[in-house]
């Protein structure tokens, strides 16, 4: 079998790695529980994967290999970060690992378009709700702060955003199904 260290395989690896960024970064975030640290770890994983490419066994599952690197890098990052508490190993960590390991390639591929569909779905969010999304997820404000700004309780903001997220996920799901139907 052709070595993964060949240029073609390197390109393929980079493409897969880039395509699956949001999925992989979600996995890293489930360990480090910090969006910025998750981004940093993702970059570290990319560098490490490139560095270890020669040692990669192409007969081994690509996802298991890359997620293994991600798990190690995430734990290393956590050990260097005192402000974050490491995730208990049992049982949640194993279940999360299992969740990512057992997904089929088709399902993972379907998730790689999440961000593109999200952009479309966000355009349909009523204007009155956009500031809440912006303050919470882009400006990183606490629910209490948002509540103070808009004159509502933190709890109501929290639940409202939860509903908006669910609606967005539903919208993304519809787009995913529609695309699958078209491709079929």
């Amino acid at each position: 079998m052709e070595s993964m260290s060949s240029a073609a395989n390197r390109d393929e690896l980079i493409q897969r790695f880039t395509r699956e960024r949001y999925v992989l970064e979600g996995y890293i975030a489930s360990i480090v529980r910090d969006r910025h640290l998750a981004e940093d770890v993702y970059q570290d994983v990319a560098l490490e994967a490139m560095r270890c490419l020669d040692r990669y066994n192409p007969e081994r599952d690509w996802r298991a290999w890359i997620y293994g690197i991600a798990r190690n890098k995430a734990k290393q990052a956590l050990s260097r970060t005192s402000r974050l508490q490491p995730l208990p190993e049992e049982p949640l960590q194993e279940l999360i690992d299992l969740a990512y390991a057992e997904q089929s390639d088709e399902r993972m591929d379907a998730l790689t378009r999440t961000h593109a569909w999200l952009h479309d779905c966000l355009r349909a969010v009523p204007e009155s709700l956009v500031p809440l999304i912006r303050m919470r997820y882009w400006d990183n404000l606490a629910f209490k702060t948002i509540g103070a700004k808009v004159g509502k309780s933190a709890g109501s903001i929290q639940v409202a955003l939860s509903r908006v997220r669910l609606a967005l996920m539903e919208c993304i799901q519809k787009k995913r199904v529609a695309e699958l139907e078209v491709s079929a």
């Binding site: 949001y22 999925v23 970064e25 979600g26 996995y27 975030a29 489930s30 969006r35 998750a38 998730l111 999440t114 961000h115 999200l118 999304i133 997820y137 882009w138 997220r165 967005l168 996920m169 993304i172």
Partner: peptide, 8 residues
């Protein structure tokens, strides 16, 4: 989790 990443 993928959605959460994309949203942020």
């Amino acid at each position: 989790m993928t959605f959460q990443t994309a949203l942020r």
